[in-house]
């Protein structure tokens, strides 16, 4: 039985029916970082609190990764022949933070700055035992 293994611990809540990204909120500056951090980049305060980030937001910018990234650091198992472009974007989550993420679509015609997006968990590779490695991504909200 293959399992789904998150790419990193404490990046998003998992397993979960409604996963959320995990960040650090600094109460003095109001700054929220993603992923978690040990000091506020604005004030250097070290009193950050672990927070779960909103699951929906608006697309802030986007691009489409058009060529196979070098491995390492990329851990995908595609070859130049099997590689399919993937979307990458920044999604603004309320007024808290803008997070960088893979997108579930790589079609330019489906992406527009300001559109509503929601968090999903997607497989991006497999490990040596055949388990699925999963990461977070944002998908256009279906109307």
């Amino acid at each position: 039985m293959t399992k789904q293994i998150p790419v990193a611990e404490e990046l998003f809540t998992w397993p979960s029916d409604s996963p959320q990204l995990i960040g650090t909120h600094y109460p003095d500056s109001g700054v929220t970082t993603f992923p978690q951090s040990t000091a506020c980049p604005k004030t250097a305060a070290q009193n950050g609190e672990r927070v779960l980030l909103p699951r929906v937001g608006k697309l802030w910018s986007w691009t489409i990764q058009g060529f196979l990234p070098k491995s390492p650091p990329y851990a995908g198992k595609e070859t130049p022949k099997t590689f399919k472009p993937y979307g990458v974007g920044y999604v603004q989550l309320a007024d808290e933070v803008i997070v960088e993420s893979r997108l579930t679509t790589a079609e330019a015609s489906e992406l527009k700055i300001g559109m509503d997006m929601e968090l999903v968990i997607i497989p991006f590779s497999t490990d040596d035992d055949g388990n699925e490695l999963v990461t977070y991504a944002f998908a256009p909200v279906k109307k």
Binding site: V7, A8, L11, P35, T63, Q65, P69, P72, P73, Y74, A75, G76, Y86, V88, E100, R102, F124, S125, L133, T135
Partner: peptide, 15 residues
């Protein structure tokens, strides 16, 4: 950055 950032295909200046 954590290793996950490169693993998941985000470590590209071109993006």
């Amino acid at each position: 950055l954590g290793k996950w950032y490169g693993d998941t295909g985000l470590m590209l200046t071109t993006q």
